[in-house]
Simulated assay, not measured.
Amino acid sequence: MTVRLANTCTRPVEVHLTGGVVVIPALSQIDCSPEDLALGQVAALCRRGVLVAHEPPVEAAPAAKPRRRPAKKRTS
């Protein structure tokens, strides 16, 4: 599962995630792991409103096609 971090500022933001340093461009989003949200810098930026964390939308599964009943044989 991933979490999306959105930069709400008009300037890039540099964050230190578990995988390394990432620069989030102005008004852009990146995917990260839920563990990254617990990191001090990320949590502080989220509290200040610089970053907003949200789960990406789940794509709906394609609708199942209705099953057709076999045609009844005519008896004459």
Rank of each mutant, 00 (worst) to 15 (best):
T8M: 11
V21P: 03
A44G: 09
C9N: 10
P56L: 03
L37Q: 04
P25Y: 00
E14N: 13
L37N: 02
V15W: 14
K65I: 03
L27Q: 12
R11C: 02
P56A: 05
I30S: 07
L5Y: 05
T18L: 10
P57A: 13
A44Y: 00
Q29E: 14
R68T: 05
G19R: 10
L17C: 10
L39D: 06
A60K: 14
V13Y: 05
E35I: 04
L27R: 14
V22M: 08
E55S: 07
A26P: 01
V3C: 04
E55L: 08
P12Y: 03
T8S: 11
Q41S: 08
V52R: 13
P66M: 12
T75G: 03
A53H: 00
V3M: 15
H16R: 09
A38M: 03
P34W: 00
Q41G: 09
P25E: 12
T2V: 12
S76G: 11
R68H: 08
C9R: 14
M1K: 13
Q29I: 02
A6Y: 14
V15R: 12
Q41C: 02
P62H: 09
V23A: 11
A53C: 00
S76L: 15
L5I: 04
L5W: 06
P56K: 07
A43Y: 00
L5Q: 07
A44V: 00
P34V: 04
P66V: 14
E35V: 11
E55N: 07
S33G: 10
I30R: 08
V3S: 04
D31G: 03
R48S: 14
M1L: 11
L51W: 02
R67D: 06
V42A: 06
V3H: 07
L37S: 09
C32K: 08
K72Y: 04
E35D: 13
K73G: 12
G20S: 07
G19H: 08
L45K: 04
L17R: 08
L27G: 05
L45V: 00
S33H: 09
L39G: 10
P70E: 14
R11Q: 14
A61Y: 00
I24C: 04
D36V: 04
V21E: 09
G20D: 07
R48F: 03
T10I: 01
V13R: 13
T8V: 12
V58F: 06
C46G: 02
R48Y: 04
P34A: 01
L17S: 08
A53V: 01
P62D: 08
P57N: 09
M1H: 10
K73P: 13
I24H: 01
S28M: 09
L5A: 01
V52E: 09
